[in-house]
């Protein structure tokens, strides 16, 4: 690959993003769309500057509920995933329950969480947890369940206990699945926390956007969206970086083979 095309590949994400905003700006100006339908990006950025203290405070709140819910999901998902992948009995017992539970739209759970914990941070954290938990469990369990039978035979013939096989083969083997699922889980966690904030909270970006909408402050609604996208991209990038650091062996390129 030539240096030129490599540079283009590096520049492509920035060019596309700038392009999108440029088209958006042009369309808003050309068709003279009113601000309460589609504010131009410049208007949105003005709103971000104008309302910065409120946006900053609410962004931090959303980031806090999301990461806390996500952290709980990582701990719980890893634990339950190992348990489910460990034993066929636990697997067959819990799997239908988990599928059924995952099928429930999480927004329907928020009213119950509000009854139990009141309006505020806790329902947002729990919704983020509930929605991001499932992909982690499924991925960890898949990693454990797909141990090569030959590998298991080799070790079992040597007198390995189930624990040995899990520690030496199963858990390291499921790590790429686990770290891969973190990228999905973190974006879902944002979905969960914002849903809960929109329905039942007095802070956070979801709450802020709902309040702005009721005042027809559409630029501020869009400012909230932009902040959510920025937070989402940053957290996704962090997870992708962690994945590369922890399981580089699973991402070997063609250049690595001898």
């Amino acid at each position: 690959m030539s240096a030129l095309s490599k540079n283009w590949i590096k520049a492509a994400p920035w060019l596309c993003t700038i392009g999108l905003f440029a088209i958006w700006e042009l369309a808003a100006r050309l068709f003279g769309l009113p601000q309460y339908i589609l504010p131009a990006p410049t208007v949105v950025f003005n709103a971000i500057v104008q309302y910065w203290p409120a946006i900053w405070k609410n962004s931090l709140q959303t980031l806090y509920t999301t990461t806390l819910g996500f952290a709980l999901a990582v701990a719980g998902g890893l634990g339950l995933g190992i348990l489910v992948g460990w034993s066929r009995l636990i697997y067959s017992g819990l799997y239908p329950l988990m599928v059924g539970f995952n099928a429930i739209p999480k927004v329907a759970l928020v009213p119950i969480l509000v009854i139990w914990f009141g309006i505020g941070t806790i329902p947002a954290v729990l919704t983020a947890f509930l929605i991001s938990f499932f992909p982690i469990v499924v991925n960890v369990a898949t990693g454990l369940a797909t141990i090569e039978p030959e590998m298991e035979d080799v070790l079992r013939a040597l007198g390995a206990r189930k624990m040995d096989i899990m520690l030496k083969v199963g858990i390291p083997r499921s790590m790429p699945y686990f770290f891969g699922s973190l990228k999905i889980a973190i974006t879902l966690a944002f979905v969960g926390s914002v849903i809960a904030e929109t329905v039942a909270a007095n802070s956070g970006l979801g709450h802020m956007m709902l309040a702005a909408q009721s005042q027809f402050n559409v630029p501020l609604v869009f400012a909230g969206l932009i902040m959510l996208a920025v937070e989402g991209i940053i957290m996704y990038a962090v997870m992708a970086w962690v994945e590369m650091r922890m399981t580089g062996w699973a991402h070997r390129g063609q250049g690595a083979t001898a």
Partner: peptide, 9 residues
């Protein structure tokens, strides 16, 4: 076995 099943990590 036929499949070497070396652990890649």
């Amino acid at each position: 076995f036929q499949n070497p099943t070396m652990l890649p990590w």
